[in-house]
Design a protein around this nucleic acid. Sequence first.
DNA 1: ACAATATTGCTACTCATTTTCAAGAACTTT
DNA 2: AAAGTTCTTGAAAATGAGTAGCAATATTGT
Lengths: 166, 166
Amino acid sequence: MSTYTSGSFKAELNEKGWRLTPQRQTILQVFQDLPEGKHLSAEELYSVLQGQGEKISLSTVYRTLKLMARMGILRELELAEGHKHYEINQPYPNHHHHLVCIQCNKTIEFKDNSILKVGLKQTEKAGLHLLDCQLTIHTVCPEALRQGWPSLLPSNWSCLRWHSLP
Amino acid sequence: MSTYTSGSFKAELNEKGWRLTPQRQTILQVFQDLPEGKHLSAEELYSVLQGQGEKISLSTVYRTLKLMARMGILRELELAEGHKHYEINQPYPNHHHHLVCIQCNKTIEFKDNSILKVGLKQTEKAGLHLLDCQLTIHTVCPEALRQGWPSLLPSNWSCLRWHSLP
DNA sequence: ACAATATTGCTACTCATTTTCAAGAACTTT
DNA sequence: AAAGTTCTTGAAAATGAGTAGCAATATTGT
């Protein structure tokens, strides 16, 4: 389910009345060729495509990303950079979460299946249907600290304040 | 630490070379008067202020929200509606997370301190400094399901796919 | 192949948020 | 307490991610 052949991709599209186009195939391929843990923004994907000599318009890139996220093929990430990132949506045992440095935007992914359990529990308790759950950990990296954080006030964040450590 | 007097607010501002202004005081007050679990977007805050007869410009609203998030007074939430929301940043024992219906945008908050433990563990492991961690659970509510989701394709989401349930 | 309709690539547009800049307001220093 | 310095404000213009409208084109079901 995490890898699509052009056949299964077409089948899933057609099932909903959508069509398989070369553009959609190419974009899916880009994501499937991406190394583990790598995610792309719309603009980044557009650059990659241009680098490959593909001439797919930016509108199509945006539309395809949205469609594939809706289909559950891609996961849409909000990582605090002011624009979305997309990655192949890995099912349960490979489901992962992100640490982000809000200064340099570097991200690290990690797996922790207890998160998904919490997601399931809370969703069930609320009588809702689970789509995705994302633990995003906002951090600053050592370099940022050395550069005098937080007096630099780079971009958006919130400091965790503690009454007592857990 | 979760409630500020105008004195402690001023002290924290001045410590960093910033100034206490009536606008900043008023905005802090609005958040402190907000019921538990309520969060506001910039536009919403602007409306609240107008309703109170305060004439604070939208630019100042945006600037103040960003500043207070940077100070750690507010927490900045990315809840999938395409714009940010802010809430008073409750320290550890009151730290909470959100369930969001990606169809109607209704949010429910819940507490689960195991999340923060995961955040601490991962941050330490990566040698970073923890600022905040937010578990955002994307869901659809029963009404959305009844209305034929996901053929409606309302807005952005990703479907969780499972190899096997955890 | 044909008809029906989904998709593409333009361009123009929206909407949240940021920037610019001159005027006004807070601290700091006498 | 007045003066000087520098931060803030408000208004308007600018930015930037993402969307919508539309004519031309491509895919699908028959």
